[in-house]
Design a protein around this nucleic acid. Structure first.
Length: 902
DNA sequence: TACCCGACTTGCGACGACACCA
DNA sequence: TGGTGTCGTCGCAAGTCGGGTA
């Protein structure tokens, strides 16, 4: 590839088509409409290799100047103790007890709030339509046995626990019961009949509403006591040892579109590499299912299991749930307007199919923006009590460390050691500072706090001006023009220097992330487009490429792990990302159609004589039932976490007769604790895999993600382990929404959605740290409730007196109260009682949700078409569910048919 | 086949803006 | 109007997975 000379940058066209901001503000309210979108499910095409055109670099890379990185704002403070979260386990007919914990668990078993909706319906007789169904049922049912008793025994008990106690996410009994209910619900659906995914299912009304355990307020019981409950990112290294060998990558960001002149030209349907016209992004076409072979497939695992075990009512397990909370970066800001702009909106463009072929024809952007250079403050640290002079570079790094004083990292030995190793290189051999422990960074910390305070005290006007200045500076970097369409760039800011904050017990925490300079950055841009001007005078890009088989605009090597890269991508709202997103969900929908076959296949292999096949079968079962991640190998210089394929013997305990207790640190060092009843052959196989091994040995020693995924691809093209997570999340949402939604006002419907969202979050083990103020908030609420109860007592007395024609007693504050009629007093009592009830509900919800993060599943796992269609069917404004960023991200899903079902 | 590279998705915490309440 | 809680967005870490290569 040709490398380009550096030319003057050309700013992509401006905001054409974006001036209609007002449109953004208009709420999108879906009414039942006659939209008929026939979604043809996109095919999963294999990705072509994409290295075809890598350009050579011209590069001029001069060695980077000594980094005197400025102190960028101190990054977030380390997360403080995470609380444990116990989660319920996934579906399947087995009873499950799962708990995930963050931070030191302090067991608490709270019950999930839930309302029973008994009487809503009984499940109609299920008529299995196809073989698949029956196949599914058999294996699952056979394997799973419900443990309802436990479930029923669980109570709510959420006593307010100290924040530290870390949540306990339901586990055990409660989970089981929840799952059971859930299964029942699902089953109902199943019974209804394997309608194809895209086909509307109108049986809702006929379907009985099964009680949702979750909603019944059952809180899973915490496994063991607090001490047992695992914590999220425990200080000690992973519970069981895990290690491995490989790993890599980095991140990206999203954006959103705008048009340019060129845009309109290219916006037309673009053929893919094979010359086929690509389907327009927008398509929401209700995808017609391609093969309906498995009528039952669309039923969540839980439900299927349930079906099997239907006879044994008590048995089944229930699914998990939960909510997510914050989420991820990448979202672009103005959403919907563009969706409406037919001329420029992405929806009108046809996009490449994301199959690894050419992703774009033309690409223009302005490169990236760098953090400002370090500004020296001159505050001295003390070494053995005496002020020490530091050079700007030394001071910058010292400041990075000083500002982390209130974080957990600050006192972690590994963090300190890594920091010291890097800092002392900058100090030099002969520096007076010889060790970190004799350094007192307080003066810098105090300076930092003062600066923070000053900033906080700025007037609104001053803040506004600063914000505008920043925006003006960044505006040109925020947009790219891809195939003539203006799209938002996700992460156009180069990461500032700082200290690496790995999660969990990351062996590199505390290392210095050096300042990234233009000579570290490779730019990717269209051949015809002007090369972005290097924003730092006298420096130049490392390389300029014109590779249209990839979607990144720029990348640099991760300073902490040079083998890895940091990419600059378009924002999530871009057409490119939208297309990819849609394909992801279509793939999951295909899995729905094949899941029956797949389950039958792995069930058959539970007892295969070939160990590898048996391990593949059991691993697939766990991924399917528990939504575990695949579990790639990891290097020693990464945190010690595992996924399914990398589970260690010590991560799984066999509890006779057929329960398995999982306890391991998963992605982001989030603890996964879950006890689940499995089918006897699975239980037996796990025992065999463990035999003769030590706790630190691989459970699946014949398996890795490559083998597993290769096997999955034999079952369904493009199927990989992670598709099961998407499938289970989406099918659960779809099922819960269809079964739980009742007539009512919008807020009531939103609650139903949140419950479903929560269920999905629990399935996916999406946790969050309990906020620092949680305990105080709960206490405050409890106090208010207590005060209201006192008021009621007084009112009762006053009412009694009023009925006898006597005046009220003096108030508790010593003041005389108004003389009210008995009717007025009764009304007041009623109102106060209602207030108490509401506050109690709020408190319970707060407690239940304190460790559940809803955002991640909403952003990444639940097909947005399910949500949009549900909003349309029930006249819920989509803004009640999706914020602006999500509206932009999911623009491609907005005109889905109201009858769309996953 | 194992390992490595590269690209892209997923995920949590920090922080700022805004809403609400006393 | 200030304190507090909630929500949205950003930052960047940490996964997954496909393909190339030795």
């Amino acid at each position: 590839m040709a490398t380009e000379a550096f030319a003057k940058p050309v700013v992509p066209n401006g905001h054409d088509g974006y001036d209609d901001d007002d449109e953004d503000e208009m709420p999108l309210v879906f009414k039942r409409s006659s939209n008929n979108n026939n979604t043809s499910s996109s095919s999963n095409r294999p990705r072509p290799s994409n290295n075809a055109q890598k350009s050579s670099s011209i590069g001029s890379t001069k060695s980077p100047p000594p980094s005197r990185s400025p102190l960028t704002s101190p990054n977030r403070s380390a997360s403080s103790g995470r609380s444990s979260l116990m989660k319920p386990s996934l579906p399947s007919s087995s009873s499950v007890q799962r708990s995930t914990v963050k931070s030191p668990p302090v067991g608490d078993g709270r019950s999930l709030v839930a309302k029973e909706r008994n009487g809503l319906g009984k499940a109609p007789p299920v008529s299995k339509s196809d073989d698949e169904d029956s196949e599914d049922d058999k294996p699952l049912s056979a394997r799973l046995k419900g443990d309802t008793k436990q479930a029923s025994s669980s109570g709510r008990g959420s006593s307010q626990q100290p924040v530290q106690r870390s949540s306990v996410r339901p586990q055990g009994v409660n989970d089981i019961s929840r799952k059971k209910d859930y299964d029942e619900r699902v089953q109902t659906k199943t019974n209804v009949g394997g309608s194809s995914s895209s086909k509307p299912v109108n049986n809702d009304q006929k379907r009985p509403l099964v009680n949702n355990i979750n909603r019944n307020g059952l809180k899973p019981k915490i496994e063991g006591n607090g001490s047992q409950a695992p914590a999220k990112r425990p200080l000690e290294k992973g519970n069981s040892s895990n290690q491995s060998s490989v790993k890599r990558p980095k991140l990206s960001e999203p954006a959103r579109p705008v048009k340019t002149e060129q845009g309109s030209r290219n916006a037309a349907t673009a053929p893919d590499s094979k010359g086929n016209n690509l389907e327009p992004l927008r398509a929401n076409q209700a995808t017609d299912k391609e093969d309906n072979s498995d009528g039952d497939d669309h039923v969540p695992i839980a439900s299927r299991i349930r079906q099997d075990s239907s006879n044994k009512k008590s048995s089944s397990v229930k699914p998990n749930a939960s909510m997510i909370a914050s989420s991820s970066r990448t979202i672009a800001k103005k959403p919907n307007k563009w969706a409406k702009d037919s001329k420029y909106s992405k929806s009108t463009r046809s996009l490449p199919s994301g199959d690894g072929q050419k992703k774009w024809k033309t690409l223009e952007h302005n490169g990236v923006i760098f953090p400002p250079p370090y500004k020296r403050h001159g505050v001295k640290i003390l070494y053995q009590g005496k002020p020490v002079d530091l050079t700007p570079e030394q001071e910058e790094v010292a400041t990075m460390f000083a500002v982390m004083r209130e974080t957990e990292y600050y006192n972690k030995q590994m963090f300190r050691d890594n920091f010291w190793n890097d800092w002392r290189k900058i100090l030099g051999k002969n520096h007076v500072i010889k060790n970190l422990d004799d350094c007192d960074f307080s003066p810098i910390y105090e300076w930092y706090m003062q600066e923070k305070e000053i900033k906080k005290q700025m007037s609104a006007e001053e803040k506004r001006i600063l914000k505008e200045e920043k925006l003006a500076q960044e505006e040109k970097y925020m947009w790219a023009v891809l195939d003539g369409v203006r799209e938002k760039v996700g992460n156009f800011r180069v990461e500032p220097p700082g200290l690496f904050r790995g999660r969990g017990e990351h062996p590199k925490m505390g290392k210095l992330k050096k300042r990234i300079r233009p000579c570290d950055i490779t730019i990717n841009i269209g051949k015809e487009a002007p090369v972005p001007e290097c924003p730092i005078p006298g420096e130049r890009w490392k390389e300029v490429k014109h590779d249209n088989t990839v979607t990144w605009l720029a990348f640099w090597n991760d300073p902490i792990n040079p083998k890895e890269f940091k990419y600059v991508f378009l924002a999530a709202s871009s057409a490119l990302k939208g297309q990819s997103d849609k394909e992801k969900y279509e793939k999951a929908r295909k899995l729905k159609d094949r899941i029956g076959h797949i389950r039958a296949a792995y069930t058959k292999d539970f007892s295969n004589k070939d160990v590898t096949k048996r391990q593949i079968a059991v691993a697939t079962y766990l991924i399917d039932k528990l939504a575990l991640r695949a579990g790639n190998e990891k290097d020693d210089d990464e945190a010690d976490t595992v996924g399914c394929c990398t589970l260690k013997v010590g991560n799984v305990d066999c509890i006779p007769p057929n329960k398995l207790k999982f306890d391991f640190l998963g992605k982001d060092s989030i603890q996964y604790v879950n006890t689940v009843e499995v089918e006897p052959p699975v239980y037996k196989a796990i025992g065999q895999f463990q035999a003769g091994k030590s706790k630190t040995d691989d459970l699946f020693d014949e398996l890795d993600t490559s083998k597993l995924n290769a096997h999955l691809k034999e079952l369904m093209p493009a199927l990989t382990a992670k598709v099961f997570r998407t499938y289970n999340a989406s099918i659960t949402l779809d099922d819960m929404l269809s079964k739980e939604t009742r007539d009512g006002d919008v807020p009531e419907k939103v609650v139903v959605y949140q419950q479903a969202n929560k269920e999905v979050a629990i399935i996916c083990n999406h946790q969050r740290t309990v906020s620092k103020s949680h305990g105080a908030q709960v206490e405050k609420l409890a106090l208010k409730i207590e005060e209201l109860r006192e008021q009621i007592k007084e009112l009762d007395i006053d009412l009694d007196r009023a009925k006898k024609g006597r005046t009220p007693l003096m108030g508790s504050d010593g003041k005389r109260k108004r003389n009210l009629t008995p009717e007025a007093l009764e009304k007041k009592i009623m109102q106060t009682n209602a207030k108490i009830e509401k506050m109690e509900r709020d408190m319970q919800t707060k407690e239940d949700m304190k460790t559940v993060a809803l955002g991640t599943s909403k952003i990444n796992y639940m097909d947005p078409r399910i949500t949009v269609a549900w909003c349309k069917r029930h006249d819920v404004p989509i803004e009640k569910i999706f914020n602006k960023s999500l509206l932009a991200k999911f623009a491609w899903a907005m005109d889905v048919d109201p009858e769309f079902r996953f």
